[in-house]
Nucleic acid binder design. Structure first.
Ligand SMILES: [Zn+2]
Length: 679
DNA sequence: GCAAGGTC
């Protein structure tokens, strides 16, 4: 087919979407061609020629020619001009530029979300003609949806959405670039050194969250807890009873209970309860859930999982992975995917089982999360060639999750026995798997269960085998790894599926965070950054800034305010705090940052860590740890009855669950480096 | 060089 002289140019967000759109709209004859190595498709419809071409996400980015800060001048430039990483966008840019020349109209067929509206708008504005623009609005890339959207095109772009999108870019740029530059300026002013520092609407609250959790963890002082462990024998098997009476707050209470229990030979069954528990199938994967499961099962970082999923998508083995959706609409064709999966040897038996098990029409057990442009992640059923071991793991996880979501509940039979020994109440809960349900396909749920539930009667007496006191310690819960941090971001709704894992990695790249034994720790620089941000750029440290942005963008979309006004207001706010910082605070902040980087020496060093002393001979963190340590001593004395200061310190310094700063202070006192007496 | 947001 010859290239038509004049045509309507349809712009998709990515090549895969371009092909789906072309295939859905072309009906009969579709011709694939290429420019600069980038594919595009040509077809005729009612005598009009159409060319379907594609972007590759954003082809333009904000840039400035100004140095220093505050910086308020920026403009859109092709991404490939500004960075090596965006080099791959150049052929897409060139191809679209050429195809725009002979187009009589432009249809923005990028994903129907805020970013898709901006991607298409900028391409048409920079390379085409906005006066001849249309927007195609579809919620899925299925032929039905695409045809419907194509037949109901309206003239003009969705400008309120575009304006909101442009505003988001500008606000993020203004806050991010300016505050990042302010931080770097502070260090350079004090030391003359150039170091790359950054701050932003998403990364900074994420850093603050880790800092806050880590501070509390480092200051955590465990307290002893007491429990009574009683072993009984039922049908020749040993079981541990769970104490359900009033918790023992003191060691003597537990000892008294143990003495009384030891006088008894039997535990009396007061009540029994049989129950049937059902565990529903898991929802299909969105990216966050896939990242969490791959971390739990295989120890993969969120970024690694995402990159593998992206490869699988490009190989056409799975659907679009950067989705928040837990929905699988029927239009994806459940049956045909199952049929294709059944052809893959590894899954033949599993799929066969599933199809036998499910007599009614296939129905996925969907979750509540949605996505404006994509369904949940599912396997396409395409047969793969060879895969690396890691790729296979992720693919397998996706296939199994897909099968599981169509399967049936896990059914557990449980027996709960309520027992009494002397005056103390205990419970024994036993569960047995009655029906494996979806666990057959996705065996990654740990369930505590027994093979057989013993037969038991109310009033029956059970022989006690052993009873003892278990001394435990209260624990501190909030520690993060990359996967749980990503879940936190998801929970507070900052970042997107595409960016969360990447933003977490950038906090490591900047040297704010590091991983020690799989757990995230904050570096001295990370603490210093968090303090500078907290003091001088407080707005940027909270997820509330995102909420504020969302409200403003919503107002733009509903035409209540104009982008120009929002941007102007933000520039005003920023201008004030940036100039104030530059004038009055940069020196102080710079010294603080430089010390954390060891660029300048600390004059008055903490005996323990060498950081700046707050008062006496300890830094802020170790002072606080010492304060808490002396306070908490009386709790230990009260709970244990007797406990010397030395015993207390020794125990604290040995326990792994004690906070790091607390442990260090306890050790320093024991070694005589610092002096401290109990309160 | 610095953000966050797309995608190869
Ligand atoms: Zn210290």
């Amino acid at each position: 087919m010859m290239m038509p002289k004049r045509y309507v140019l349809v712009i998709a967000e990515k090549p895969k979407a371009a092909f789906k759109i072309a295939r859905a709209l072309s009906g009969s004859k579709l011709v694939k061609q290429s420019l600069y190595g980038i594919p595009y498709w040509v077809f005729y419809h009612n005598g009009v020629a159409y060319v379907i071409a594609s972007a590759a996400g954003h082809l333009f980015t904000l840039a400035t020619g100004d140095y220093g800060f505050p910086v308020f001048n920026y403009y859109w430039v092709p991404s490939w001009v500004t960075s090596k990483e965006a080099k791959y966008t150049k052929p897409y840019y060139l191809a679209l530029k050429k195809l725009c020349k002979n187009a009589i109209a432009f249809i923005n067929a990028c994903d129907y979300d805020i970013e898709g509206s901006v991607i298409g708008y900028l391409i048409i504005r920079e390379l085409g003609n906005l006066n001849k623009a249309y927007r195609m609005k579809f919620s899925t890339l299925t032929p039905q949806d695409l045809r419907k959207a194509f037949s109901s095109l309206s003239k003009g772009l969705d400008m309120p959405m575009v304006e909101a999108g442009l505003c988001r870019h500008e606000l993020d740029w203004l806050w991010g670039i300016n505050v990042s530059r302010a931080l770097m300026y502070a260090v350079k002013r004090v030391t003359g050194k150039k170091v790359i520092l950054s701050a932003g609407r998403v990364q900074s609250p994420t850093l603050m969250e880790v800092v806050s959790a880590e501070k509390q963890r480092n200051l955590f002082i465990p307290t002893p807890t007491f429990n009574i462990n009683v072993q009984v024998s039922i049908g020749g098997k040993l079981y541990s009873l769970e104490y359900i009476g009033k918790p023992f707050t003191k060691k003597t209470d537990a000892e008294e209970a143990l003495n009384r229990i030891k006088r008894e030979k039997w535990a009396t069954i007061e009540n029994i309860r049989y129950e049937v528990e059902k565990i529903k199938p898991p929802p299909p994967f969105n990216l966050g859930d896939l990242q969490a499961e791959a971390a739990k099962i295989y120890g993969f970082s969120p970024l690694k999982t995402q990159e593998i999923a992206e490869q699988l998508y490009l190989d056409a083995l799975i659907s679009y992975p950067r989705t928040n959706s837990q929905k699988l609409p029927p239009t994806i064709g459940y049956k045909s995917i199952m049929a294709k999966l059944k052809e893959i040897p590894e899954y033949t038996e599993l799929v066969g089982n599933l199809l036998l098990e499910v007599s009614r029409p296939l129905k996925p057990h969907e979750g509540g999360k949605t996505d404006p442009a994509h369904p949940a992640i599912y396997p396409t059923g395409l047969k793969s060639k060879t895969m690396t071991a890691d790729k296979r793991k992720i693919y397998d996880l996706i296939v199994r999750r897909f099968l599981a979501t169509f399967s049936s509940n896990i059914v557990l039979q449980s027996l709960t026995i309520y027992l009494k020994i002397s005056n103390y109440r205990f419970r024994l809960k036993l569960r047995k798997i009655y029906a494996k349900g979806w666990l057959k396909y996705y065996p990654y749920l740990n369930i505590d269960y027994v093979e057989n539930i013993p037969s038991i009667d109310k009033g029956q007496k059970i022989p006690i085998v052993k009873a003892k006191i278990i001394i435990g310690y209260s624990r501190y819960g909030r520690t993060y790894n990359k996967s749980s941090l990503l879940k936190w971001m998801e929970g507070v709704n900052i970042g997107t599926e595409s960016t969360r894992a990447r933003i977490i990695e950038s906090l490591f790249l900047r040297g704010y965070l590091k991983t020690v034994k799989g757990k995230i720790e904050v570096t001295p620089l990370g603490y210093a950054i968090s303090e500078v941000l907290e003091r001088y750029f407080k707005d940027l440290t909270s997820v509330e800034l995102t909420r504020k942005f969302e409200k403003m963008l919503n107002d733009i979309r509903e035409r209540r305010v104009r982008r120009e006004d929002i941007v102007k207001e933000s520039k005003n706010i920023l201008s004030n705090i940036l100039l104030e910082f530059k004038d009055k605070a940069a020196e102080k902040a710079g010294i603080e940052l430089a010390k954390s980087l060891k660029y300048i020496p600390v004059e008055n060093k903490c005996t323990i860590c060498g950081n700046e002393v707050l008062e006496g001979s300890l830094c802020k963190n170790h002072s606080r740890a010492l304060e808490l340590l002396t306070e908490k001593y009386k709790v230990w004395v009260n709970v244990l009855g007797t406990c010397s200061w030395k015993e207390y310190l020794e125990k604290i310094s040995k326990l792994n669950i004690s906070g790091k700063w607390v442990r260090e202070v306890a050790q320093a006192i024991l070694k005589g480096y610092i002096e401290a007496n109990p309160q």
